[in-house]
Design a protein around this nucleic acid. Structure first.
Lengths: 170, 170
DNA sequence: TAGACGTAGA
DNA sequence: TCTACGTCTA
């Protein structure tokens, strides 16, 4: 069995509803919600340009903020909180570029939230919850906590979707 | 669902036969052949001392050699070929210590071989093949390619098990 | 070949 | 907290 079908979808994934929960990133990949195992931003070609089709928000970048209908999401690269690596300026390429392109195309982006919880045996686990479709409204550059360049993207939830009740307990 | 049952087995795993193939390390963990996702040596307490119950030989250390009935297996730590990390002296602890202890206890160690192959689409994939039970005969120290200390373990296949036909094609 | 919002266990 | 014979895409 191959994990990925190779087929990428823009917008809703058939059979997946807001609030559906998953335990592992690999499940998201198999189902086709988000192909990449670790990377937060997945992208695809749409009418010849690269746009984001899904992101995972596990809250590991400093600037991330997730409210009911708005998501502030950091770009990709070199600024993860607590990772023991050299901080670097982020570049407007790959996922970051795709997310920027999604502003003008107004194409929908699937958002998955990673909620950290303790399971019955007390172990810290992440549950991935499908949060629905968002559009990317704007982006800008910031100087991150390490003094390096960080891209910030503001996304808003497309109206008319079921509300997401579940929140992180930690 | 939890991936691991927590129960660890010394020796044969019920339902698993020599030659059984798996595509991912996580499968080995779920089934109980080898709990650890990335680490090569898994161990457990047996009559109060730590012994190895399973190893995965994916051939990533320089000194590894696998013949029909003999396996030369490198210890754990800081000497993986091609990994972009600081080489370090290996220590006689955790998996390495467990493997050493298995010499005197004569307890069986499950061996899984990671065979690298190209799948139909030309991608390089690793297939994990259950190779049966081995005992650890002896160990010694070497100086690895980086000039650092490496433990070498010599294992031999317990006689009377079915032959393993499959070999790496690469 | 390197990089990525991974996982589990010690 | 950190390490570990991971696994994928580009």
């Amino acid at each position: 069995m191959e994990v990925n079908t190779g087929k990428q979808i823009l917008g809703e994934v058939p059979g997946i509803e807001v609030g559906d929960e998953f335990q592992y990133r690999v499940e998201l990949a198999i189902i086709g919600i988000h192909r990449l195992y670790q990377t937060g931003i997945d992208s695809m070609k749409h009418n010849g340009i690269s746009v984001a089709n899904s992101i995972v928000d596990a809250g590991v970048y400093a600037g991330d903020k997730h409210n009911a209908d708005t998501l502030l999401y950091s770009g990709n690269g070199g600024n993860i909180v607590g990772k023991n690596k050299q901080p670097k300026d982020q570049k407007l390429e790959k996922g970051n570029l795709a997310l920027k392109n999604s502003i003008s195309t107004k194409t929908p982006v699937r958002v998955v939230r990673g909620l950290k919880e303790k399971n019955p045996s007390g172990k810290l686990v992440t549950t991935y919850v499908y949060d629905g479709l968002y559009t990317v409204d704007r982006y800008w550059q910031e100087t991150g906590p390490h003094g390096k360049l960080v891209f910030m993207f503001e996304l808003s939830r497309i109206p008319g979707q079921p509300k997401l009740r579940k929140k992180s307990k930690i």
